[in-house]
């Protein structure tokens, strides 16, 4: 597949070795806009490394990562950060919201950091929080429940209208009820917004909701259902 053919995420022949240990051994992966892919695997199998390669935080030994047709590998750090800002949205296990800010300010932060129009950022943040059912008027971020905080984190990831949404154990810190709600939301918004969703999780019940479930083991990515390469 060549650059520009897809607006989603393409990973080609990714190799990454840590000392003697091969973490990624020619990983190929493609996530189309609106498609959701879950990556599972045992601890230490390299799921987070794969995510870091996609984020550009770790430089692979070989291979390429493309987002919306734009090759990430080899980009200078400034340009890389710009691509991350404009095309990637990330959700972490613990939400990582600033308790001192209001939910609206937290969600608007990526746009503000990117130098976007602040009025538009606040407007969009309010819309997203309303859409995702997070109370945003009068409730400080510190008072939100775990599920609400994670939904606010999803809203924050979506505010830049990313082409690719990355989620690193997004339901790992939630109770079963909140986990269901956040998982529902995540898959629904990626479909609605037409962004490629790459989800890394231990939780097979959450992974099962993805359109495709892949398993990373011994550095190789295989289809979790039939063992066929991704």
């Amino acid at each position: 597949m060549s650059a520009g053919e897809s607006a989603g995420l393409q990973v080609e022949g990714l190799h990454y070795r840590l000392g003697e240990r091969v973490l990624l051994d020619g990983v190929d992966l493609s996530v189309e806009p609106g498609e959701s892919v879950a990556v599972t695997g045992p601890s230490g199998s390299g799921k987070s490394t794969l995510l870091m390669c996609v984020l550009g935080l770790v430089r692979p030994d070989r291979g390429a990562v493309r987002i919306g047709g734009q090759e990430l590998t080899g980009l200078p750090s400034g340009r890389l950060a710009q691509v991350r800002r404009e095309r990637l949205g990330t959700i972490f296990q613990f939400g990582e919201l600033l308790p001192e800010l209001t939910p609206v300010e937290n969600v608007a932060l990526p746009m503000l950091l990117g130098g976007g129009d602040h009025r538009a950022a606040y407007r969009r943040a309010t819309e997203l929080l309303s859409d995702l059912g997070v109370p945003h008027e009068g409730t400080p971020t510190g008072m939100l429940s775990g599920g609400e905080r994670q939904r606010a984190a999803v809203a924050r990831a979506l505010i830049t209208d990313p082409a690719v949404l990355l989620a690193d154990e997004p339901t790992g810190a939630l109770d079963p009820e909140a986990r269901e709600a956040v998982a529902d939301l995540l898959f629904a918004v990626s479909l609605e917004q037409g962004c490629a969703l790459l989800l890394v999780t231990h939780d097979l019940s959450v992974a099962a909701r993805a359109q495709r479930v892949l398993r990373l083991e011994a550095g190789v990515l295989t289809d979790a259902l039939d063992g066929v390469g991704a």
Binding site: L55, S77, A81, R84, T90, E96, L97, L98, L113
Partner: peptide
């Protein structure tokens, strides 16, 4: 800083 790190790293906005 732990709270701000993911945003700062991902957006490349260390000056924040």
């Amino acid at each position: 800083r732990h709270v701000l790190a993911p945003l700062a790293v991902l957006t490349g906005s260390h000056s924040i």
